[in-house]
Amino acid sequence: MGVGVGVRMNSVAVGLSRDLAPKRVMRAVAYGHDLAVWRDGENGLHAWDNRCPHRGMRLSHGFVRGDRLACLYHGWQYRKDGGCAYIPAHPGLEPPETIRAQTYSVIEKSGVIWVSTGNDAQGVDTGPVSEPLRSLTFFCAEAIARAAFEDTPFAGNLPQVESTGRLVAGGHPVAVLANPVTESETLIHVLTSAGVGIAAKKALSRWCEAARSVAERQAA
């Protein structure tokens, strides 16, 4: 159980907004697609097929200059619309329109980055529970990972499960979002509410790790 259950979703949570600063790029997986998710210099967010059309290099290893993402291998630069703008080996060449990175739909909601493989990304509104705690990988299937949060005590007590699917652990509201990376690997994002203090957040972070131990023991 968790936020989003029962909602027909076309999008998946690939990361916390907090963890991707302007002019940075990261790798993400959405529905089995390998993606490069990056922010331009004006904080605009982009999700692309993680492959430079030139030599197949993962663009998530690349770098952002201004409003362009560049491939690490040969420095080819791509505009926000995915079109190739510049080939350093041929500075005078106007790259043909046919050289372009495949783009995906991406939005931010509730402090989370959501990607769709269709053309209309949606995010879940987690209401006041949109304070980023952390993202972490579980080596198990999504269902096992989700269930583990309900089965893992916080300070000696099992968390309560609310009708919304949210959990309350030690009095702190928690939203758990899951991205199934593979059948045996799940990327979990955990949110709490803004009023929770630093010490409690650190305790919740350790509770997430305890849930991971439970899940990975079960999957082993």
Binding site: D34, N50, R51, R55, G56, M57, R58, H61, L72, Y73
Partner: peptide, 13 residues
């Protein structure tokens, strides 16, 4: 090496 391990597909088209 890190370039070569991140080209997709792994095989040479």
């Amino acid at each position: 090496r890190s370039i070569l391990e991140n080209q997709k597909p792994t095989l040479l088209p």
